[in-house]
Nucleic acid binder design. Sequence first.
DNA 1: TGTTGACATTCAAACGTTTGAATATTAGAA
DNA 2: TTCTAATATTCAAACGTTTGAATGTCAACA
Lengths: 362, 362
Amino acid sequence: MAQQKSGHVTLLDIARACGFSVSTVSIVLSEAPLSQNVAASTREQIRTMARQLGYHPDAFARSLRRRHSQTIGVLAYDLTDPYCIPIVRGIQAGLHPTNYLPLLMDAQIQRRLFDSYLKMILERRAEGVIVIASWIFEETNLLADIEKNHVPIIIVGRDLTSRRISSVFVDNEAGGSMAMRHLCELGHRRIAVIRGPEELFDSKPRWTGVRKAATEAGIRIDPRLVFQLPNSVDPFSSFEGGLHCAKQMLASGRSFTAVLAFDDLTALGVVRGLSEVGLRVPEDCSVLGFDDVLPATVSTPAITTIRQPLKEMGLQAVEWALKALEKREQGVDLNPQSHKAVPELVVRKSSSRPPERKSQMR
Amino acid sequence: MAQQKSGHVTLLDIARACGFSVSTVSIVLSEAPLSQNVAASTREQIRTMARQLGYHPDAFARSLRRRHSQTIGVLAYDLTDPYCIPIVRGIQAGLHPTNYLPLLMDAQIQRRLFDSYLKMILERRAEGVIVIASWIFEETNLLADIEKNHVPIIIVGRDLTSRRISSVFVDNEAGGSMAMRHLCELGHRRIAVIRGPEELFDSKPRWTGVRKAATEAGIRIDPRLVFQLPNSVDPFSSFEGGLHCAKQMLASGRSFTAVLAFDDLTALGVVRGLSEVGLRVPEDCSVLGFDDVLPATVSTPAITTIRQPLKEMGLQAVEWALKALEKREQGVDLNPQSHKAVPELVVRKSSSRPPERKSQMR
DNA sequence: TGTTGACATTCAAACGTTTGAATATTAGAA
DNA sequence: TTCTAATATTCAAACGTTTGAATGTCAACA
């Protein structure tokens, strides 16, 4: 009845319905400072009418006028990956006490989608962007556009300070060392290692850390027990990669008492591979993961892993984004920062001392 | 330089920069029909200038003027739950060929957040809303507002046709029957059942299906082997619930050769509980899950489960949402519809024939 | 010469808000 | 009585687009 053609209730509808001007209604409903001057009776009248009609302010009109969207764009490379979720949670948690809202997008590991969502984030005038990408994320030309439009951008999951982008990522080297040290301390000497895919940012430093710790412990890593995941991209593939590597390991005829896997899903793949030939984890062979995602916790045995403080990393990203906005308000451009989060060894059931009889591994 | 105070490049910037009017620029950049009449040289000039300045149209202004947001709100009860993700994927897949964009929100199983995000979806003038909620989702008063503003709403994960809301959900009864039938066919007779939490929509019909199949197979379910998950809410708790039930089962002294768990995470909890007393799955005891989420696939043994066609359910929801929009365009209000998706038995490694010697279970 | 119509471009209003400035009303003070 | 000040409300412009209608130019036709 009082509806506009658009189907949505507007200030004008309310104004007409209770005989005040649009301005007054706006002042009351948006709780502008001037609303103190509005008669209490008027306020009440307007508010009840708004409730009655089911009024909700039009975010488009409001943002247009106020020149603020109160939005932070969050672009995840793949929500399917359990790695992303805790980061998103951290971002949500960080944003919650402010009145910024996350605009969450899932690129599904597709460059095309990544670009089109980034464009959308720009069009929606997000005031900042947080990109979750442990994964390849080369120069999109949109990146330049983001800069031209003065939108602060933070990346979590890899170091892009070289491109002058604030970055939050885990200290992979330290993590790799922790993992190797844990196995050494348990008494393992023949340790198979599954390295991450070539093109993944985390792979190299993690491997460096592993080697350092091995050297420090006086252990030689048999190059024939070093494997590498293929350059694939979706989370499930790293499970299959682990499974495949385990088979190769077993086929190689070399003996080993532990496997240091690139991440948790790889570790789960290894567990599967070992179990298929009747080997038990950890009695016959220890398996270590990295990340600490849900599947590592709920599988049996629970996977010993290097935990990334994902939620905290999300929080950190938000903190910087907000600070950048604040500074921008004052006309200052913030220099890109970087934060190396410290990982943590989580000992669970997939690691133990090596089996007594070495012959057990053929 | 040519920047407005807002920091964003606008049509006016481009117009000034190349000496045409805002209208012409708009017509060219938005590829309006009139742009055929614009001189090719002009078009080129405007386009390159836009690219150079990094122009992106302001979605707020555009939507305001066009009276279309090209957006579908998607409100998930908890992205942490692996159950949600494939549904979201389905929704994305369904939306992709259209030019609607999903506006994805994660309520984190908190009523307050649920409400505030729903409000946000309304304010952003989403043209339709899809709610993912297997979980409690009682009358929000916002629901009434959604109706007042003529926004079509679809729920996936439970049946709310009684409240005149289109619903997509799995045929829980059929699924429950499938699970039980599978165990019976393998030869199990003493089967423990873990029912879902009281307040969860899926719980009752699933249990009905289980009992029906048992009756048909001439099997009596020992009430002392029936357990129930507590009314909790986060996905991890169902793992713990399963673990706890397994302990109770074992403590009860009753013998059983299979456990039919409410969902996959519960099943994984049961596996853990059994393994803690040295029982192996499936050699000593079979375990069945429900849903088919990632952790069920990557754990060892892989969990035999009843698969919900989650992605398809998401697709279905989108299809209806779009149809409702189409109809609304013509002024027709669509009647709420409902779709019971048919589940599917996925046989993996956690189920097998019961062990020969019954004494094995004490 | 005037009319027609195709082509190229611009005008101006509108979308739903917000907000600085303006107006109107009342009460109290000078 | 007029002036000031507080209270209560409205005007009107602006945010960045889009778009129906208007304008202007030019060539071709009658």
